[in-house]
Structure formats: structure tokens, C-alpha cells
Design a protein around this nucleic acid. Structure first.
Lengths: 355, 355
DNA sequence: ACAAATTATGGAAACGTTTACAAGAATTAT
DNA sequence: ATAATTCTTGTAAACGTTTCCATAATTTGT
């Protein structure tokens, strides 16, 4: 496997061989209109023959930027994000860009990371997945390339100024989810939330939970919310399992008939905890998820959940970003509706309410 | 969010400001030993102050290569692969390289794809995940950069010459899996295989299945193997579901008490098919998987499976490749043992055999 | 103290493209 | 025919690094 010393050929080699100038070759491969069709063909045929591929580094250097779009993911082990990459690849690829995946640690300063990447790799744009927004305005201003936030909780009352986002209304959709549970007759509804200091998705979805309760005149009981330990990775089967476990231990005192999980992964963990306790989903405890991971359909019982329109979101995020890059179109905040999918994990109690 | 026109500063700017030559700056940031410690500090402080980040494209152009390692994945939606990316990022990063993820269509010519990437991006090496090897020698010879095949079935009798690989012995470990089922008293064992023309993982694992049967004097019954339709994406919940369905339909005539699934994802699909038929896992049908996806532990019932040591494999693949790149060490074929994890999805029948 | 060896620095060329500019060839208008 | 356009092409200068080579500064040896 040693390097054969076969230097890949350059635009210059092609030029010599074709007996033309180097700029002619350049024009040929970029199909610049101002070049005779005949010459172009001759050059191109040599290009094919020699199997020439232009050197990206050189191109990028000269162009002073790349065609790379950074995809920065906080919490990349989250299956929800994993399902998105392929989509970005095709969407961006369709318009000539290449995604560059980059995992960011849960608690890292995602913007600084982005900043370095932006300069080092001359990214043309950035898509953030799962970014947290502690401080509503400070960090993102530093970025000079366009970017869009995707899948990030959004406090509608204070939309982030000048920032493009694509997301579902986490709060609203959570409210719907819990409302659904209530419609099904549940009143004692526990919740597995994110970390206690979570400012993003977790917080929004928890807010939705509280909203639904108060909307229906159900008292909020702190004993029924299980936060994830600070050190844990969010949205993980195991953390869901642990969190559910804690709820289950004190269920004698603090009864609940339904459990709203902040994400599907967490719900799967909860399933196990419940089963281990000798209880059954849904006859003893109804479980509701959020995200719509494909596997949910195959769990026993299959998971009732709010599904996020992943591929639409991906497409929009890509389009939004690319438009901003190319046409300098203005920023937008896009919201998608999640869709309630009724499956087997929620049981109706006495039909308490109905509209 | 318009471009501020703030040109990121170059090595030249730093040089001017520090009152030194441009090569001095270069040496400072690459900590070249032949430079006075004092000068170095001065330069470096300006670098920090100005927040200078060297331009990758320029570096790569000059170096005539990048520090990028292509990770080419065939079938990127497969959860098994998804779990590997983070590992590559840290392993490669530890030694100064950057992974570049690239999804390849199931049926695409993965090597040609690689070839283009190799030239265009000047990759320093390539790791293939899930590559199929139809023709034992032709395609890979074209590659000039080092590469390693990971997770690819391996026919031990004809090891690929001159190619580094990291894998589990798919055939052998499948045999163990099926042997386990047999030890538990099962004789009528169905199997969900890959596509019928699968030459890679699928074929090897199926071979293991047949091996185990014949080893134990159990007759191979073609009616008990369910291939996946040619057009389907392999290793998908849905394809598993469909395949199981077909088996179940003719179970009257072709009875089986256990089902060996070529992968965990497929097993999850099978779960659903079985449940829908009104049957129960494991009391009616025992199910065995292969891969060891984390979610398996949380399914009901939890899935008995052969777990592949993913993180070890990732680490080795990275090390193997990097060693080859840096020290020109020789190629190796590495095999890892999978580990049988007994969980709830397999029930013992009459204890037929034991050693 | 002076030559020789060593060490630290700067200048310039190269890496493989794109592109502004100039020049040559072909076309059209007069 | 000749001047004025328009097309086509080639040359050279960037882009931001690294690195070879030469030179300047320092240290060492005598």
C-alpha cells in the first residue's frame, strides 16, 4: 500500500497536453460561457481521460471560502440528530454544498467552537442542532457567516432577533401532548424533564407540561417531575430509566397514572423501569413520548408520541441557510407542527373531559 | 447578519504587527524548535490577541494533502454505524486528524466514490464502514491512500490480500449465536437473512447459521429462511418486520420455535410482527439478534444478542489506519470476538443438548 | 580577539486554482 | 478594404501557508 508517487495531475498538465492555456482549462471545467464549444470539448475529453479532479484546497484558497456547511451537533449520540445527517447531505449537496459534521460536547461553548471552525475551515454557513441558548443575544453575534438554529426551543414571547431558526413549537406541542393525556382521563401525570438547569428544549417542553395542567385546572405537583442528574447526558435511554425509577419509587405516596417523557429515548428507558417494577404499560401507567423516533413504532407497546417532521425541518434549515448565503434573503423563524400519533402506550381512563 | 467585511487576519498581518518575518510566525505557530523562545512568545501573544486561526485551505494546498480521513458509510441510516461516528471523531482527533463523513448509497460503487473524494479533498486515508466486497481484488487497488475496512464480513478462507480490516468473525459468531439457541433446546430455528444476493455481512452470518445447524445434525430447511426483498434497505426495522411476517404466515406448515435475526434492527421489526400475530416473545418464539444496539436492553422483552465491541473496533480501525499513514506499518486483519449477552428474548425448551 | 561553528531570522518560491487584464482572432459594419 | 466590435485565448497576479536558502546574529573554540 505504499504511495506510488503518482502525483495527481493538475490543471497545468491538462493545459500542456491540450495545447491550451491554463485559464482555458479552468474555464472548461467550470463551464464558463466564453470559450469555444469545440475547445471545451477537447479539454474536457482530456480531463476525463486523465481522470483529473480539481484540487479543493486550491480552489477554496483562491475563493477565500469553501462550500462547506458546518453541522454542529450538541449531543450527537442522540438518535434524533443522527437521523438528520443524511438529509442534510442530500439537501445541501443538491445545491453544491458539503456538510461537515462536528460533534460538540454537551457543555461546551458551542459558539466559540463554531467561531474557530468558521475561520479555520472557512465555512460558508453553519447549522446548529440542539444548541442551547443561555444568553438570548450575546454569543451568536460573533459569527460572521450565516447560520440557522435547528430543533432549538424557542420562547415565542422573545424571539431571537436576527437569527434564523427552524423548530417545532416545543412548548405548544408539549402542551398538546399533555392535553391529550388529560383528555384520556389522566390527572396525575408525571413528567421526565431534562436537566434542572436546561434552558433549551427541556425547559420549553416542561413549560408546555405545566401549561396544560394549569389550563385544565390540575395542580402542579413538584413531586411528579423527575429531572435528570446534572452530569448525565440528556435524552438517553439510561437517563430516562433512572429518572423513571425515581418516580416509581415514590409512587405510593405520589401516585400517577400517566408519564409524559420529554423525548422518545427517555420514554424507552422509562418502559424498562416500569416493566421492572412489575407494572405494565399502558394498563398501569400510560406513557407518552416526544420526537417520533422510528423505533417507537416497534416497541411493545408501541409508543404514542408527538412526531417532529424531521425531513421537512432538515430541508427548510438547509434552504433557509443557503438562501441567506446566496441571495442574502432575510432571516426567518420557521415553526413546524408536530403530529400526535396515537399508538398503544396510552390507555384511556374514565372519560373525564371532552370538548 | 451581513458580512462585516472584516477580513480574517493572515500570517502576514501578524508578522507585520510583531515586527518579524512571515516565516517566523509560521514557525511560532507550528512550534518549530529553531526559534528563540522569547520571539515565539511575543508572536504567540499577538496571535492570541488578534484571534488568528491559520487558514486550512492554504495549509493543505501547500502540504499537498489534508488531515482529513474519509469515513465512507454504506447505509448510514443503520444505527449500528451511527453509533460509531463520535468514536472516530475522538480517536482521530486525538492524533490530529479530522473525520469527514460521507454517506454512500447502498448500491453505489463505493470505491469510485472514494477515489473522487480522495483526489478532490486530498484525503489522507479512508475508513470504510459496511462496504460490500463483491469482487475480492479489483476495486480497492485503485486507491492510493491507506484505508481500512471496518465491520465487513470476512471470508476467512480467502482473506483480502493487502487490505487492513477490522471486524468480528461474522460467520463464527453467528454460529455461536445459533449454537446457543440449539443448546437451549431449539431445533426448528428460522432465520431472517439479508438480501439474497448479499455478499457481505449478510452472507457470512447466514453461513454461520447453516454451519451451526449441520454441526448439530439439524437439517437445513430453506422454508425457514426469509431473505429481504432486493429493493429494500438492509437492516431496517421495517424490512425485519416484513421478513418476519412472511415466516409467520407459513408457520403452520413450517414450524419454528426460535428466530435468529441477522441484526438487532431486524429483530426489533420481528418483535412487532410476532406480537401482532398474537404470539409472544419468548414464550412462543425465542428471538436472537446480532449487533448489540443499546436499545436492545430496553425492549420488552430485552433482546438476547451478540454484541460487537463497537468502541474497540472503532479505536482499532483508527489506529490501524493512522499507523499505516504515519509509520507505514504493515496491514493487518483484526478480529474481535462478539459477546453473547443473555437477556429475556430466548426461552429454554427441553434441555436437549449440553456439553 | 578572530575564525569557525551554531542558531535565529527573513525573503522568495511553491502548492493548484481563479480571474483581471491584455492581446489575438474572427466577425460585423461602414 | 478597413475600422469597429465581439469572441476566444493566454499571461500573470493573487489566495495564505510552508519551506528552502541565504543572511545576520550569536556562541564556541583556539
Amino acid at each position: 500500500m505504499k504511495d506510488e508517487g503518482k502525483k495527481p495531475c493538475t490543471i497545468r498538465d491538462i493545459a500542456r497536453e491540450a495545447g491550451v492555456g491554463i485559464s482555458t482549462v479552468s474555464r472548461a471545467i467550470n463551464d464558463d460561457p466564453r470559450i469555444k464549444a469545440e475547445t471545451k470539448e477537447r479539454v474536457l475529453s482530456i480531463v476525463r481521460e486523465r481522470n483529473f479532479v480539481p484540487n479543493m484546497s486550491a480552489r477554496n484558497l483562491q475563493a477565500r471560502q469553501t462550500n462547506n456547511i458546518g453541522i454542529l451537533v450538541r449531543g450527537i449520540e442522540n438518535s434524533f440528530f443522527q437521523s438528520m445527517y443524511k438529509g442534510f447531505e442530500t439537501e445541501l449537496g443538491r445545491r453544491g454544498y458539503t456538510p461537515v459534521l462536528h460533534a460538540v460536547e454537551e457543555d461546551e461553548a458551542i459558539v466559540d467552537e463554531a467561531l474557530t471552525l468558521e475561520r479555520e475551515k472557512r465555512l460558508k454557513g453553519i447549522i446548529f442542532l440542539g444548541g442551547k441558548i443561555e444568553d438570548p443575544d450575546i454569543p451568536f453575534q460573533k459569527l460572521v457567516v450565516p447560520f440557522v438554529l435547528c430543533t432549538v426551543a424557542q420562547d415565542l414571547k422573545a424571539p431571537l432577533k436576527g437569527i434564523s431558526t427552524v423548530s417545532v413549537d416545543d412548548e405548544g406541542e408539549s402542551r398538546s401532548a399533555v392535553n391529550y393525556l388529560i383528555e384520556k382521563g389522566h390527572e396525575r401525570i408525571a413528567v421526565i424533564a431534562g436537566k434542572e438547569d436546561d434552558q433549551a428544549v427541556g425547559a420549553q417542553r416542561l413549560k408546555g407540561y405545566r401549561g396544560a395542567l394549569s389550563e385544565n385546572g390540575i395542580e402542579y405537583d413538584e413531586a411528579l417531575v423527575s429531572y435528570m442528574p446534572k452530569e448525565s447526558t440528556e435524552f438517553t435511554y439510561e437517563s430516562g430509566y433512572l429518572a423513571a425509577k425515581r418516580l416509581l419509587e415514590k409512587r405510593e405516596k405520589h401516585y400517577f397514572s400517566a408519564l409524559f417523557c420529554i423525548s422518545d429515548s427517555v420514554a424507552f428507558g422509562a418502559y424498562r423501569a416500569i416493566t421492572e417494577t412489575g407494572l405494565n404499560v399502558p394498563s398501569d401507567i400510560s406513557v407518552m413520548g416526544f420526537d417520533g423516533l422510528p423505533i417507537g413504532k416497534y416497541m411493545t407497546p408501541s409508543l404514542t408520541t408527538m412526531v417532529q417532521p424531521v425531513s421537512d425541518m432538515v430541508r427548510s434549515a438547509a434552504e433557509l441557510l443557503l438562501d441567506e448565503i446566496e441571495d442574502k434573503k432575510c432571516v426567518k423563524n420557521l415553526f413546524y407542527d408536530a403530529q400526535l400519533i396515537e399508538r398503544e402506550s396510552v390507555k384511556a381512563l374514565k372519560q373525564k373531559k371532552r370538548r
